[in-house]
Design a protein around this nucleic acid. Structure first.
Length: 585
RNA sequence: GCGCCCGUAGCUCAGUUGGAUAGAGCAUCGGCCUUCUAAGCCGGUGGCCACUGGUUCAAGUCCAGUCGGGCGCACCA
């Protein structure tokens, strides 16, 4: 398609009809309205000013040349103001799409645009100081879908969870648990000012009292707190891993912040900064000259008291990621961390990498509701809805779909009532139902001894009606949706596509019968079909004079073959998002 | 004060990286099952794309400014 246009451009240039100094690469896209054909191209308008002719004139020249050059491909090439070229292919060309889907099956839609380039995808990375909440769930669903999407597009993806198991938060956890532990044993205790208030802290403390008895009381508080912190974070981390597994999210690596310190990598990172003359001593602290790379100001990495800042550890972490040889680092962060991006891109550049090698996807907050009733959440009081609770209530399919329904950088309203509803209002069921419905048709077909044909077995000319072609064209888009979605790191595009395809399928299903009625075999009729494709010479069974299509065995076979491909694409898309494609509902 | 994100139908949001007459779903009103799953379909109602200016053949999309909402601005993590 694009090649045809490029060749034509070269031809008209050589023949002198249009003197083009440089041949542009034409942009071809499906037009907004079906009446405008199968593809449209704007190259005439971009060229018009260069060749000093009106866009319409340029388009005319290209259109006639294209049509005479490629008669077997184009049925029609139209020119529309202000200078669009609209192409209509011979309908029969579209049948190739179905053959492609049938041939590739579950791999239909995958590509190699990533060319094997390696990506480290870091997401969730919740502190092991409490259970995962819904916000983490959104990040988890997004990361998981993104990983599948990128893998399907030819990238080598590795998923990683960064464990913040060093520093103040963990100490606070230890002090919280220790305080509850003393409380439980009837000793006096002072709960830390901004400690963790959730009930899970009490549970941890109690189980701690059972396993350790009163032994911790005999230790100095500092040591006891450290022991409590260690034990509690390990348990909480295990639960996080469990919750994620339950949600269908897995990581190749769990990277512990502590190992950065124990291996001396933080100090090494700062040493390297000095070597590169990107560090400075000031006010008794060590600073990273991040402003050299566009940050607002320089940042402290080693405090006056000699301890490292969080940034220092994070710099060491990102340096380590790059040292492991990844081409691109993708981080999924909560939107409240956006101010951190300049620091991190500065880090990447400080160690000699392009700033494009770090891509940060920001995820906005999730607010929960039941119908119109909002559910208040406050982390301070420890009253927030956990991911596990949501998954148990609405199921992991619905949870994932809802998390992936919106662009990452917009607020998400998650309606628990809606997610549980089994109706067309619920987009998850809507898409899954389309898949199950088709499965049911195939089941009934087999029960009645109707064979399930392949595309090669059927009379393809029976699939050239407007509704059939509409479905086929949507199926043809799928690989492009995946590609765009992967490049932009936007899985929500796949969710929207699936809803569109499902809608089209449901409409088709309601309008056209596939199997003959159970008792009296051939009496069923479709509603009038649009004229057009049926004028194609081969379509002998499609009565040109009659506006109705008889549901002959040939028609049944052709439609079955078409619908199998629809089902394949529905299944591929759902699977990619980590959502099940049920055979029955 | 500075920086980032957002502003599209009554509500929740898409908008193919600058294209033609801006689209869905919800809500609301009215239809469609003796037949392959009604967890479905068909039709009606709804818009100053926050505002102003600029860039060009073309702006919801890019740039500048204004207004409004959210979030950041630590030798915290």
């Amino acid at each position: 398609m694009v090649d045809a246009i490029s060749m034509t451009l070269i031809k008209v240039n050589e023949s002198g009809e249009l003197p083009i100094s440089s041949i542009p690469s034409p942009a071809v896209e499906p037009p907004k309205r079906p009446e405008w054909g199968d593809f449209s191209c704007n190259v005439a308008m971009t060229l018009a000013s260069k060749v000093k002719q009106s866009p319409l004139k340029v388009a005319e020249i290209l259109a006639t040349t294209l049509l005479t050059q490629f008669p077997e491909l184009f049925k029609q090439v139209d020119v529309a103001p202000p200078g669009f070229l609209n192409f209509t292919l011979h309908p029969i060309c579209w049948i190739d799409v179905l053959r492609t889907i049938e041939r590739h099956g579950s791999s239909y839609g995958t590509s190699q645009i990533g060319k094997g380039s390696s990506i480290l995808l870091e997401f969730v990375s919740a502190n092991p100081t409490g259970p995962l909440h819904v916000g983490h769930g959104r990040g988890a669903a997004l990361g998981q879908a993104m990983a599948s999407l990128l893998t399907a597009s030819g990238y080598a993806v590795s998923r990683e969870f960064y464990i913040n198991d060093a520093g103040r938060q963990l100490q606070l956890l230890g002090r919280s648990v220790y305080a509850r532990y003393r409380e439980f044993l009837g000793k006096d205790s002072t709960f830390p000012e901004d400690g963790y208030h959730g009930d899970y802290i009490k549970e941890l403390a109690e189980s701690f009292a059972h396993s350790h008895g009163e032994t911790l009381l005999e230790q100095p508080p500092d040591e006891a707190v450290a022991v409590a912190a260690q034990a509690a974070s390990q348990i909480l981390l295990d639960r996080i891993e469990e919750d994620l597994a339950l949600f269908g999210v897995k990581f190749e690596t769990w990277f512990s912040e502590t190992t950065l310190h124990s291996k001396g990598l933080v100090q090494k990172t700062l040493d390297e900064l000095r070597e590169r003359d990107l560090a400075k001593e000031e006010d008794g602290a060590l600073w990273f000259r991040s402003s050299e790379f566009g940050d607002d100001k320089d940042r402290v990495v080693k405090k006056q008291d000699g301890s490292y800042t969080y940034l220092a550890a994070d710099m060491a972490y990102h340096r380590d990621k790059l040292d492991r040889g990844f081409d691109t680092l993708v981080n999924i962060w909560g939107a409240d961390h956006h101010g951190y991006i300049p620091r991190m891109t500065a880090t990447v550049q400080a160690f000699g990498h392009e700033k494009e090698s770090l891509r940060v996807v920001l995820v906005q907050m999730v607010s929960l509701s039941r119908g119109t009733q909002k559910i208040e959440m406050s982390k301070r009081s420890g009253e927030f809805v956990t991911l596990r609770e949501v998954v148990e209530e609405v199921g992991s399919d619905a949870a994932k779909f809802f998390f992936l329904m919106r662009r990452a950088d917009t607020h998400l309203d998650f309606d628990l009532e809606l997610a549980k509803q089994q109706s067309s209002d619920n987009p998850v069921y809507y898409v899954q139902y389309a898949h199950a419905r088709l499965a049911s048709v195939f089941r009934v077909a087999q029960e009645r001894g109707v064979p399930l044909p392949t595309i090669e077995d059927v009379d393809a000319s029976l699939l050239l009606g407007a509704d059939e072609l509409g479905l086929i064209k949507t199926l043809a888009q799928y690989p492009f949706i995946l590609e765009g979605s992967a490049l932009a790191l936007e899985p929500h595009r796949v969710t929207f596509y699936l809803q569109e395809l499902a809608a089209q399928l449901h409409a088709y299903y309601n309008k056209h019968r596939v199997l003959p009625a159970a008792e009296n075999a051939v009496k069923s009729e479709d509603r009038p079909q649009e004229d057009g494709a049926t004028t194609n010479g081969k379509a002998s069974t499609v009565g040109h004079e009659s506006t109705n299509t008889q549901l002959t065995p040939d028609v049944t076979a052709a439609r079955l073959a078409l619908l199998r491909q629809v089902q394949t694409v529905l299944r591929n898309g759902l699977t990619l998002l980590g959502i099940s494609a049920p055979e029955k509902m």
